[in-house]
Computed example of a mutant assay.
Amino acid sequence: MAIPRRVAALVVNSTKADGGTGSLRRTLTAAVAAAGWEPLWLETTSADHGRGAAARALREGASLVLVYGGDGTVREVTGTMAGSGVPLGLLPAGSGNLLARALGVPVTDLGAALRIALHGRDRPIDVARVAGTDPVERFCVMGGVGLDAAMIRDAPERWKALLGWLAYLGAAVRNLGRPTVPMEIRVDDGPPVRTRARSAVVANVALLPSGNSLLPDVRPDDGILDVAIIDGHGTAGWLGVVADAVGRRGRFKDATVLRGREIRITLGTPQPRELDGDLIAEDAELVVCAEPGALLVRVPGTP
């Protein structure tokens, strides 16, 4: 009787591999083969940041997918894998690596992350799906409109290459004069909350690159999304917001927080929007729905 294939796909962002992918490929495929899997090597390209590679992995029968890259690559792969029932292993190689940090996957020890990806336990987590996009957009960490997206838009690529997430602080300072915009936030079937603010952030995972938590009560597996409406009154207020982000206060004080399965944010004017650090088209609306337990992720622990 034929032995069923056990395929483990490796979706790799080659731009994150110092000195090329040759040595990395040998290391990863050898470890996968030693664990009893048949490795399937798939590199991202300028035209496919991971979504197509993940789809190919599923088509070819992979029963485990490992992703080597940063938050953007992880978002592309998880968006495709949501609902598949195939576990995902995280091999962090970016500047933020927020999902990995939140789930306890080491971000500076590739060997340790690889052992977890191959031998850890599967944890179901929620995924957030954005309505009205084609193709469907999803995220696992945070999506936002307004100032936080403007920070990502305005951070120069050379700064990000040199400074990592600290590059966004300079962009934040440059946007301190950004005016508030009218916002209407509706959670599930509740009444609308109308206000003026500079940013609204929907969180499934609330960890910031500084190690702080935007919203300490957020859990990635409770089937609920949290939305923080952040004002920061005037320049002094926004300096306080920045201090909350990079300091050790553990939360944003100047924020209104709502919770639910569907978050609908309607804006007075089109605003920048971002999902896990990736910009999407500006719009005057952001509608996000929770997909409870849609993604299996390998985390530390015994299966």
Rank of each mutant, 00 (worst) to 15 (best):
residue 1 M to Q: 03
residue 1 M to L: 05
residue 2 A to V: 11
residue 3 I to P: 10
residue 9 A to F: 05
residue 10 L to W: 12
residue 10 L to V: 12
residue 15 T to M: 15
residue 17 A to Y: 09
residue 18 D to G: 15
residue 20 G to E: 14
residue 22 G to M: 12
residue 25 R to G: 05
residue 27 T to D: 13
residue 27 T to M: 14
residue 30 A to K: 15
residue 30 A to S: 15
residue 31 A to T: 04
residue 32 V to G: 06
residue 33 A to W: 07
residue 39 P to C: 04
residue 39 P to I: 05
residue 41 W to I: 01
residue 48 D to M: 07
residue 50 G to N: 01
residue 52 G to L: 04
residue 53 A to Y: 01
residue 56 R to E: 11
residue 57 A to W: 03
residue 58 L to G: 00
residue 60 E to L: 06
residue 60 E to G: 03
residue 61 G to H: 01
residue 61 G to W: 00
residue 64 L to T: 03
residue 67 V to F: 08
residue 67 V to M: 07
residue 70 G to T: 02
residue 70 G to W: 00
residue 70 G to F: 00
residue 72 G to E: 02
residue 74 V to L: 14
residue 75 R to C: 01
residue 78 T to E: 06
residue 81 M to W: 09
residue 85 G to D: 00
residue 86 V to F: 07
residue 91 L to N: 04
residue 97 N to K: 11
residue 99 L to Y: 08
residue 100 A to F: 05
residue 101 R to H: 06
residue 101 R to A: 05
residue 103 L to M: 07
residue 105 V to I: 13
residue 107 V to A: 08
residue 108 T to H: 14
residue 108 T to W: 14
residue 110 L to F: 02
residue 110 L to I: 02
residue 111 G to C: 07
residue 113 A to D: 01
residue 115 R to P: 00
residue 115 R to F: 01
residue 117 A to R: 00
residue 121 R to T: 06
residue 122 D to C: 12
residue 125 I to D: 00
residue 126 D to E: 13
residue 130 V to E: 11
residue 131 A to V: 15
residue 134 D to E: 13
residue 135 P to M: 06
residue 136 V to M: 05
residue 138 R to C: 08
residue 139 F to Q: 07
residue 140 C to S: 15
residue 149 A to I: 00
residue 150 A to N: 04
residue 154 D to P: 05
residue 156 P to C: 08
residue 157 E to G: 13
residue 158 R to Q: 15
residue 160 K to I: 09
residue 162 L to S: 13
residue 164 G to D: 01
residue 166 L to W: 14
residue 171 A to N: 02
residue 171 A to G: 03
residue 172 A to V: 10
residue 173 V to R: 09
residue 174 R to Y: 15
residue 175 N to Y: 03
residue 177 G to T: 13
residue 180 T to M: 15
residue 184 E to A: 10
residue 189 D to I: 13
residue 192 P to C: 05
residue 192 P to V: 03
residue 197 A to W: 08
residue 198 R to M: 10
residue 200 A to P: 04
residue 201 V to H: 00
residue 201 V to F: 02
residue 208 L to M: 11
residue 210 S to L: 13
residue 214 L to Q: 10
residue 217 D to P: 05
residue 217 D to L: 13
residue 218 V to Q: 04
residue 218 V to G: 03
residue 223 G to C: 13
residue 225 L to P: 04
residue 226 D to K: 03
residue 229 I to H: 03
residue 229 I to C: 04
residue 231 D to H: 11
residue 232 G to S: 09
residue 233 H to N: 14
residue 233 H to R: 15
residue 233 H to D: 15
residue 235 T to S: 13
residue 243 A to P: 06
residue 243 A to D: 08
residue 243 A to T: 09
residue 245 A to I: 05
residue 246 V to Y: 12
residue 249 R to P: 08
residue 250 G to M: 00
residue 255 A to K: 07
residue 256 T to P: 01
residue 257 V to T: 11
residue 259 R to T: 08
residue 261 R to L: 06
residue 261 R to N: 04
residue 268 G to V: 08
residue 271 Q to G: 02
residue 272 P to Q: 12
residue 272 P to D: 12
residue 282 E to M: 14
residue 282 E to V: 13
residue 283 D to Y: 14
residue 288 V to N: 03
residue 293 G to Q: 12
residue 294 A to N: 08
residue 295 L to K: 06
residue 298 R to I: 02
residue 298 R to W: 01
residue 301 G to M: 10
residue 302 T to R: 15
residue 303 P to G: 12
